[in-house]
Design a protein around this nucleic acid. Structure first.
Lengths: 343, 343
DNA sequence: CATGCTTCTGTGAGCGTTCACAGTAGAGAA
DNA sequence: TTCTCTACTGTGAACGCTCACAGAAGCATG
C-alpha cells in the first residue's frame, strides 16, 4: 500500500532496504524471492511484510545481469505483414501466448520481421540473448531466421509444423489431417459425392495435411479422387473466389466443397451464390479455422475449429520446458467439427 | 561475421573484449556505442572493427542497471479482450507502433489487461519501472489504470482522446468530427436529405465527436436534425444490424445512413438489403475506419480512412519525446474520405 | 565430549555496463 | 617559457542483484 504517492520519481526500494526493514540479510531476502527454500518461517514472514511495507519490486535488470537469463520471451512473426490483418487466428494466438506467459510473470516482446532488414536486426537481437526463447509464427517454407535461431541454440517453439530443416525444433499444431477427415466425412454423411476442395498453400504442412485428409476419406469411402475437383489457394479470400470459379468451370456438377480456410470459404460462397447456386441446398460448403469469418459469412459456415487457446498454452509450456533444459517436443492437438448452416 | 557457430552457448563478448581487441579502454568503447562524441576518428574506426570482429552486442541489462532506463516500452490494452478479434484497427496500430519503435531499437512489450487481476499485475509491473513509457489503447471511459499511471508519473500516450481525468495526458487521435463532417457533406452532395446515423458508443470521445460532426453539417445545411434518425451502437456488427432495424422502423423514408464504423456498416447493409432496399440507389451507406470490412462488404463501402500508420508513428514520437523530458502533447490527425460503391 | 548432519543465515565477490573524474597531449596565446 | 584551452582517453566506483561459501545453531549419534 505504501507506494510512490508523489508525482515525481523517487529512488525505488532495493533488496537492501527490504533486508534492513525485515532485520535480515540480502541473501535471505533473495532466497525468499526465489522460492523460499532454506528460509525459516519467521524470516519468511518478516521479509514478506517488509516487501509489502516498502512496495519493493525486484529489479529485473540487476537479476538478469547475474543470472544470464532475461526472463522475457519473444513472439516472432516472419510472415509478410498482411497476415496480421487478414488472419484472425493470429490475434487469438498472440493473446493466448501473452496470457499464458503473464501467468509466469514473463513479458512478451513482439517482433515483426517483414523485411529482410528487420529479419537481420531481430535475429541479431535474439541471438544476443535478449530473450530466453522464441515463439515462432511462420507457416511458409524455408524460413532462414528459424534455421539461424536453431543453429544458435535458441529455445524455439513453432506454431504449426515447420518445414525446411529441423526435426529438432519443437512445434505445436492442430491435427490438420484429422480435421480435414472429419469435414469430408461430414459432407459424405450428407449424401454428397462430388466434393471439391480448395486447398491451402501446398508448400505448408497445413495445406498438405488438409488435402491428404480429404484424399484419405474419399479413398476409404471407395470414391475415386477426381483431380479436377482439386484447386489450390493461399488462404486469402480472393484466392477462394478464384478457386471456386475454377472448380465451377471444371466440375459444374459439384455438390460440396471443402475449403481449407474460412476466409477462402467466404470467397467461395460469394462465387457460388453469384453463379445462382444455393448453399447448402445445391452445394454444401465446409470451412476450416472457425474464425470470426465463419459466423460473419452468410450462411454461417460449418467449419473445423482449431483449439487456439490450447495451442498457445502448449507453445508456452513447451518453450518454458525447453528453456529449463528439456528436449524439443512436438504436440498435436485435436480439432473439432462445428456444424452451422452452410452444410 | 564471426558469430557463435557452435550449437552450444558460449560466453558472449563483452565491452572489455572489444576494448582489448581495439587497443582502447572500456570508456572509449562505451562512448562509441553511445553516439561517438569526443572520440578520435582512429579510435572510432578501431572500435567499430573490433565490434564487427567479435560480434559484440551490448548487454542491455547491464546498461539498464546503471542508466535506470529499461529501453523498452509497453503497449497496453485495457479494453475487454474481444476488441482484439473484432477490431482490425488494433492490428494496424500494434504493427505500426512495433515498427516505429524498432527503428529506435526499442522492443515493445505487449500487455493485455482484461481482468482486474491482470490490471493490478500490469500496473505494478509498469510502476516498478520495467518499461520507460506506455502506449495506451483504451477508448472506454474512466480507465483506472491510466489514472494510476499518470499519477505515478509514467510517460504515457493514449490512442484517442482519453476521458475521465487528465488533460495532462498525451494522446494522438484522428479528427473524428471532421471525418464525420466530410462523410455527411458527401451524402448531402449526392442529394440525400433524410440521413440517418448509427453512432459509436456515446461514452467515448470518438462516438461523441462523430455524432457532433453529423449534427454540425446538417445544421449548417439548414436541415433540422431529426432525433428519430439517430440511433447508437457499440461498433460491433450486430449492433449495426440492430441500429438499422430501429432506423427503418422509425424512418422508412431514410435515403442515406452514416454509420460510425465499417463493422456496423456491414450489419446495416445486411439489414437494408434484407428489407428489399438497394444500396446505394435507395439508401446510400457511409462507414468509418476504412477497415478490411469496408472492402469485404458488398457493395464496397464508402468510408472515412483513419491514418493509422501516422497515428502509431505519432504516438511513438510523442512518447519518446515525453520520456526525454518534453511536456505532454495532443496530436490530431486528418482523415480522408474514400469513395466506393455504397454511395 | 567429540563428531556429523541438517537447516538456516550472513558476507564478499562479481555480472557488464555507464558515469564522473582525473589526466594527457597538442595547439595557440600571453 | 608558461599558461590555458580543447580534444581526447583511461580508471575506479557504482548500479541491484544472485551465487558460492563459510559459518552458526540445533540435534542426534558414536
Amino acid at each position: 500500500m505504501t507506494m510512490n504517492h508523489s508525482g515525481g520519481r523517487r529512488r525505488p526500494p532495493t533488496i537492501h532496504d527490504v533486508a534492513r526493514e525485515a532485520g535480515v540479510s540480502r541473501g535471505t531476502v533473495s532466497r525468499v524471492l526465489n522460492g523460499g527454500h532454506y528460509v525459516s518461517p519467521s524470516a519468511q514472514e518478516a521479509v514478506n511484510a517488509a516487501i509489502r511495507k516498502t512496495g519493493y519490486v525486484v529489479n529485473r535488470h540487476a537479476r538478469s545481469l547475474i543470472t544470464g537469463r532475461s526472463d522475457s520471451i519473444g513472439f516472432l512473426l516472419t510472415e509478410p505483414q498482411e497476415r496480421l490483418f487478414e488472419d484472425p487466428n493470429f490475434n487469438v494466438l498472440l493473446r493466448g501466448c501473452t496470457q499464458a506467459l503473464a501467468a509466469h510473470d514473463i513479458p512478451l516482446l513482439l517482433m515483426l520481421a517483414g523485411t529482410e532488414d528487420e529479419r537481420r536486426r531481430i535475429a541479431r537481437y535474439i541471438t544476443a540473448g535478449h530473450v530466453d526463447g522464441v515463439l515462432l509464427v511462420s507457416s511458409h517454407s524455408g524460413d532462414p531466421v528459424a534455421e539461424q535461431l536453431r543453429k544458435a541454440g535458441v529455445p524455439l517453439v513453432a506454431c504449426g509444423k515447420p518445414i525446411g530443416l529441423g526435426s529438432k525444433v519443437s512445434y505445436v499444431a492442430a491435427d490438420d489431417r484429422d480435421g480435414a477427415r472429419d469435414m469430408v466425412r461430414h459432407l459424405l454423411s450428407l449424401g454428397r459425392r462430388r466434393i471439391g476442395v480448395v486447398t491451402g498453400p501446398l508448400d505448408t504442412p497445413g495445406g498438405v495435411e488438409r488435402l491428404a485428409g480429404y484424399r484419405e476419406v474419399l479413398t476409404e469411402a471407395g470414391i475415386e479422387v477426381d483431380e479436377r475437383l482439386i484447386v489450390s489457394g493461399d488462404y486469402s479470400r480472393s484466392s477462394g473466389e478464384a478457386g471456386a470459379e475454377r472448380l465451377l468451370d471444371r466440375a459444374p456438377d459439384m455438390d460440396a466443397v471443402f475449403v481449407a480456410s474460412d476466409l477462402m470459404a467466404q470467397g467461395v460462397l460469394t462465387v457460388l451464390q453469384r453463379s445462382g447456386r444455393r448453399v447448402p441446398e445445391d452445394v454444401a460448403v465446409g470451412g476450416f479455422d472457425d474464425s470470426p469469418a465463419a459466423t460473419a459469412a452468410s450462411p454461417e459456415l460449418t467449419t473445423i475449429r482449431q483449439p487456439w487457446d490450447r495451442i498457445s498454452a502448449e507453445m508456452v509450456r513447451v518453450l518454458l520446458a525447453q528453456i529449463s533444459g528439456e528436449d524439443p517436443a512436438a504436440v498435436i492437438l485435436p480439432t473439432e467439427l462445428v456444424k452451422r448452416r452452410s452444410t
